[in-house]
Structures are given as C-alpha cells and as structure tokens.
C-alpha cells in the first residue's frame, strides 16, 4: 500500500510540476468545446441537444491527448525497467499509474465539464448527471488509454496511433456516457441503467486493462 501511494504521489507531483498535465488537458477540452458552436452556428436549441455528446467527445479526446504521458517518459528515462524489478507486481504499478492519470485528467475534466457546458447551452438540470456520468465513466477512459500507451511504447510521438487503437474501444463508454447524462436529464432516475453499465465498464477496464498493459510492457522488454 505504501508502495502504491509512493507511485501515485510521484505521478501526481510530476503532472503538477511538469506542465502539460492538468492545465493542458483542461485547455484542450475548453478549445474543443469553444470551437463547436463556431462550427455549428448559433442555434441554441441544437447546441443544447448535442451538449452532452459534444462534452463527452471532447472529454475522450482530452484524455487521449494526455495518456501517452503515463508510460512514455518512464520508458525513455529507464524508470519503467526499474519498475519491472520492484517487489510490486507490474499490474499493480499500472493500476496506480492509471489511477494517477485519472486523478489528474478525468476528475478535473469531469468537474469542469458543466462549466464548459454553459458554452453549449447545457441545461442546468443536466449538470449533475453530467458530472456523475463523467466521473464514473472516465476511469475506463484512463485505463483503456494506458493500455494503448503500453502498446505503443517504442513509437515516439505515438499519440496518433494510440488514438487509432483506443478510440474504437471508447465507443461503449461514449454511448452509455451520453445516454446516462441525457436520459437522467430528461427526468429519469439519476442512477439509471446507463450509469450502472458505465460503472460496469469502468470496473471491467480496471481489472482487464492493467493485466493486458503489463503483459504488453513485459513483451516489449523481452
């Protein structure tokens, strides 16, 4: 547990100090959300209708943008091979790193999403479901993203390839995320089936992605 905390804290400190972390992800999120109304025109009713979907897509892209930061720097400076020699299984290390990524990307983006939703004329009553669904769904995005990062360790500037690999896997999260944020806005219960499926997706990603990512990292060094 102490080891796990050591690595989470290190990644949080690095994300805070190095820049390119929280600020960049939120900035990118803001820019995408700002560009949408410019592209679609000032149709307030239309914007309001597509707001949850647009925010979710912006969230996916922001997470993808930052996910190659999780493993690539550690691979380049040799930290990752030291982590292979640690007493903690690599799978747990990957979980910790993914969790730190979620804390520095998923959580701040989820909390700011309703604020940026104002730009898209997001209905005020949709704010809470949006926060809830993005908070519950974004762990799946981080874990899947780290899996993509582990597969592209060797490729410098592999961000584009990660997107290509991982975006299809984001589809279920996107579908149920949007459904959870808009259906509950329409007066249904907050904890509807979509939200539960979203939670299931996150939990499944928590279990499966670190296994796959650790296997990919080991295979990479072999």
């Amino acid at each position: 547990m102490k080891i796990a905390w050591a690595i989470v804290r290190r990644d949080l400190v690095l994300a805070y100090r190095q820049g390119g972390g929280i600020g960049t992800a939120i900035g990118f999120f803001l820019v995408v959300v700002t560009l949408l109304p410019l592209g679609l025109g000032p149709d307030i009713a239309l914007l309001s209708r597509i707001a949850p979907g647009a925010l979710w897509i912006a969230l996916l892209l922001s997470v993808l943008l930052s996910v190659d930061r999780v493993l690539q720097p550690d691979h380049e400076d040799g930290s990752l091979e030291q982590m292979l020699l640690a007493p903690m299984p690599l799978e747990l290390t990957v979980i910790c790193k993914s969790f730190a990524h979620w804390l520095t990307t998923g959580v701040p983006l989820a909390l700011t999403a309703p604020l940026f939703g104002l730009l898209l004329n997001l209905a005020p009553e949709a704010a809470l479901p949006l926060i809830l669904s993005t908070l519950i769904g974004s762990p799946a995005l981080s874990f899947l993203g780290v899996l993509g990062a582990s597969l592209t360790l060797d490729i410098r500037r592999g961000g584009l390839l990660i997107s290509l690999l991982i975006l299809p896997l984001y589809v279920p999260v996107l579908i149920f995320g949007v459904s959870a944020s808009s259906s509950s806005g329409a007066g249904l219960t907050l904890l509807g089936p979509s939200l539960l499926i979203l939670l299931a997706l996150s939990l499944a990603a928590l279990v499966l992605c670190p296994l796959a990512a650790a296997a990919a990292i080991r295979a990479h060094y072999r």
């Binding site: 290190r10 400190v13 690095l14 100090r17 190095q18 380049e76 400076d77 040799g78 930290s79 091979e81 030291q82 020699l85």
Partner: peptide, 12 residues
C-alpha cells in the same frame, strides 16, 4: 540494475 538510463525524473 544500474544501466545506461539513469531512471531520474528531472522535475523531482
């Protein structure tokens, strides 16, 4: 294992 890479984080 002390290899060619120093495993040092420059921001820390």
């Amino acid at each position: 294992y002390v290899g060619h890479a120093n495993a040092i984080k420059t921001a820390l």
